[in-house]
Structures are given as C-alpha cells and as structure tokens.
Nucleic acid binder design. Structure first.
Lengths: 188, 188
DNA sequence: ATCAATTTCTGGACTGAGTCTAACAATCCA
DNA sequence: TGGATTGTTAGACTCAGTCCAGAAATTGAT
C-alpha cells in the first residue's frame, strides 16, 4: 500500500518481521493470552514502543494475512473490477500458507472474546466493501433493506468459504474453489 | 433466566438499575470513550467492584437490550420452536424503546473499534444460534459449506433488518415488519 | 565537514479496563 | 445467638494502549 519511501530519514530496522516471528513462537509456547507485548518485544530485541510503531494492537498480529487480502480486495474494487471477479482474483492470490495464526492455533491459544471481536472486525470490513460494491453495480441507493440483505448474504458466503477452507486442514483445496462454491449458492 | 432466588443471603441493592441510569446520563454528557467506569460508579453511589458484579465489561452497558433479545431467541429455539417462528416471536416482543444506547447515541459517543467489536460479538451469537437451528431443522451435519452459507445468509438478513429498524428513527414501523421483509428475501 | 531535515527507535510516565482477594455487611434459618 | 449464604467494598495488581521528549541513523544541501 505505502511501500514507496524515497529513502530519507533513518531506515527501518528489520523490526517488523522480527516481532512477527517472536510473537508466533511465543503464542505457541505459551498461549496468546499468556503472552504479553513486553515479552514479545523483549524476545524480538526491540523496545515496546516500537511494537506500536508497526501494529496498532496485539490482536493485529493474528490477522496480518487476512488484512492483506482485504486490502487487495479493496484495491481491486477501487480499480473498477466487478465484485465477484475481484473476490475470485484475490482468492486466487491467497496461498495455502496464508491461514492466519488466529485460526491454525486456536486450540493452543486460549481464544477469548477479544480474539473473536478482532476477527469479526475483519468480517465487518468485508461486508462494508461488498455493500458498497453491490450498491455501485446495481446503481441502487445504499439505504435499502434489500440491498443490505443481499450484501450481508454475499459477505456471509465469503466468510463461510474462507472458514471452510481453513478448516479443510492440510488437505484443503485452493481457496478459490471454496469461494466459487459459496458464491454460487447466493448467486440468485 | 435466573430470577428465582429463595431470599437467602444479603439482598441485592438497586445497584444494577442505578448503574445503568448513571451510565446513560454520562454517555450523553460526555461520550462513551470519555466516561470511565470510576465515574459511572461514583455517580451511581456504588463501588467500582460492584460494577463488575453486574456487568462483565463496559461495553455490555450498550447492548443490554440486544442481549436480552438474543437470550429470548435462544430460549425459544431451545424449546423446539422453528427458527423463523422464533425470530418472529422475539421480534414482536421488542418494543420501540429497545433501540440500544450504542446506536441511538452513536453520534455523541465516539464510536470506536471497541464498540464495533462488541456489537459484532452479538452478531456472532445470532449467527451461531441460526446455524445450530438450521442444522437441527434440516438434519444436516454442521460441517457443510452450504449449511454455513445459508446460516450466514439468514443471520445477515436478521441483522440487516434490525439495522434498518434502528435507522428508521422515530417513524419506524415495528421490528417484526423489517424482519419478515428481510427473511422473505432469503427464503429461497 | 557541518548542518538541517526527516524518520525510526527508545525509555518512561501515564490512563483505564479488567482480575483477584480478603474482609465486611445484611439477610435467613436453626 | 450463631452459622450459612450472598452482596458489597477497598485496594492492590496486570496489562493494553497512548503520549512525549529525546537519541540515533540516514540523505541532501551548504
């Protein structure tokens, strides 16, 4: 999104990746709840303040890949691509390694309300994008009940597909398979 | 749910209602973010510890009515009533005063991520109930993609209806009108 | 070389939510 | 009167997230 920096000022250290790695380790050793930001930054050899330089909250660590996909979806839609095409495109870009930490290790990390909430915040972003896209494509105003029901339905299908893909385990087919199946079910 | 208490032990003071009232006042005077639990309990003339005796988090204050409706839905479903009937029944019980604080005053209270998240947690509860109910009614196993897509779709419709009802302002029709409209849209 | 501008990194202080515990208060029942 | 039970309280504690002032590392201009 913002990769263009014309090399002025102090260059970034490798902080971001180091923090991610340290966090992933600690979340496995202890749980998510049982790990403090202090511990993460200590293991990463970085100050606590730096953490918030890269992440706006602890739970952000768990949804990096999802956030990236959502940003890609937003870009595609902004460039004028149709909704279903955009979703298919982004789904095709998501590799099998992109299952978020939050879910793969939801057993070992005590999944608390905060986790659920942070995950749902992503769902809400998707729903908002879908809503805007459908409104634009159909030319409807954005206030109608029918439009919102339709948007929630499509967003729900996307989320359901993503969940099924995650739960598919190592034998999972590509995400785009699940997505197209789910979208077909709501494609009236 | 748990109203039956055979009057043993120290009786509850009027704490709960007092806290709710104090909170509602303060949220209007200042914002939600700008109000601390300390202030709420001070105005209510109650200790801070008592707050957590009645509410498990600050954001619970905003969703009391929604939580009540969700509990009613759960009860109806548990008693074996069909999903759509249960939803209609609970919707009919919801009076026009039941628009949650979180939404009516979302202008004056700086609606932050925490608020969105706490609201979405309720959506998730609804979705889970709907999912279980549909699984029971159709006899399907709970793992299938089609089932989840359908459940998310219905839950999304319920939420959309509830949102439209809220945004209807003082001129809103009964909630059950919005609900039946929305469910009709997903009643394939 | 030196200096200014810019950006990252750091330490530390601070706020406020949520947890926990031990004690105290009010009630019922024996 | 004296448990048993339940509600209330004060206070200490942990941790996430905010804020700020300053140090460190770099580029480009003088």
């Amino acid at each position: 999104m913002n990769g263009e920096r014309v090399t002025v000022g102090r260059p970034r250290a490798s902080s971001r990746g180091t923090i991610e790695d340290a966090a992933a380790e600690l979340f496995l050793e202890q749980s998510y709840d049982g790990t403090t930001i202090d511990e993460i930054t200590q293991r990463a050899g970085v100050s606590r303040a730096t953490f918030f330089n890269y992440f706006s909250s602890k739970s952000d660590l768990l949804w990096m890949d999802a956030d990236h996909a959502i940003e890609r979806l937003e870009e595609c839609l902004a460039s004028g691509a149709p909704l279903f095409d955009s979703v298919a495109l982004v789904a095709a870009e998501v590799g099998p390694e992109r299952v978020p930490l939050a879910v793969t290790q939801s057993d070992v990390m005590g999944t608390r309300d905060e986790l659920v909430a942070s995950g749902l915040a992503r769902v809400a972003r998707v729903a908002a994008l879908v809503h805007a896209a459908i409104a634009a494509e159909t030319g409807q105003g954005r206030g109608g009940l029918a439009l919102t029901v339709r948007a929630n339905s499509v967003a729900g299908a996307i989320v359901a597909a993503w969940g099924a893909w995650i739960r598919g385990g190592v034998a999972r087919r590509p995400l785009s398979d699940y997505i197209s199946d789910a979208l077909a079910l709501v494609q009236l």
